[in-house]
Design a protein around this nucleic acid. Sequence first.
DNA 1: GAAGAAGTTCGATGACTGTCGAACACGTTA
DNA 2: TAACGTGTTCGACAGTCATCGAACTTCTTC
Lengths: 116, 116
Amino acid sequence: MSTAVAKRKRTGEPAGEVLAHPPREELELAAVLHALSDPVRLLIVEGLAGGEERSCKSFDLPVVKSTCTHHFRVLRDAGVIRQRLDGTTKMSALRRDDLEHRFPGLLDAVLGARHH
Amino acid sequence: MSTAVAKRKRTGEPAGEVLAHPPREELELAAVLHALSDPVRLLIVEGLAGGEERSCKSFDLPVVKSTCTHHFRVLRDAGVIRQRLDGTTKMSALRRDDLEHRFPGLLDAVLGARHH
DNA sequence: GAAGAAGTTCGATGACTGTCGAACACGTTA
DNA sequence: TAACGTGTTCGACAGTCATCGAACTTCTTC
């Protein structure tokens, strides 16, 4: 065996560490607002508002798989969500605490907006 | 005389009416977030946070005039600001009440964010 | 009137975006 | 080991975006 997973098992590296997440101090307002300014990504964020982790596949998004990958990555790069590998699936969760610390009230305002 | 201003004087049409502004019920979250997701436009919004009207020229923005026109129009089309003609200058102001009604807490969260 | 001031319009440009489909990688399960 | 499920990578594509400079419009002022 010489896969990435096998290597992590040998070295004891946590699986989640392979995914890059910006630290909370480096979250940028413009980047977060941009990440939240797409309808599909707003659906994702609202789906995570409950606080529980969810797999990408558990969302019923109006786009194909590869586009989902794109949107989840935009959210992760902006620091809106945190992703963790779990077998073949990737679990995502909102970074509520980090967002609240950096931009107090922002996420609640977005989630509380009356749509349409 | 056959200018637009002369025509408005003849017909009694208010000068401010020539600028299109979306009504408060039609403000869209994604559009507002997108309008706020640009650094130059964030500068404009912060400059209007005091509540007073300001001319475009009173801002010291790091872009040329025509680009300013673009950014102010994006903000106006999204419903973030209201613009009014006053002679050769165009006065801009935040639509605080409308934004607060439609997306409670959003503008305060954006304005209160700790930058950099 | 002529000159100046404040914005707009237009075209161009380079960068980025959202979308898809096909092929691939990896872990799980039969 | 083979098949399946979940997600990624890659290339392509059409559309949008931020930016600039030059020419223009409109109002004010001298």
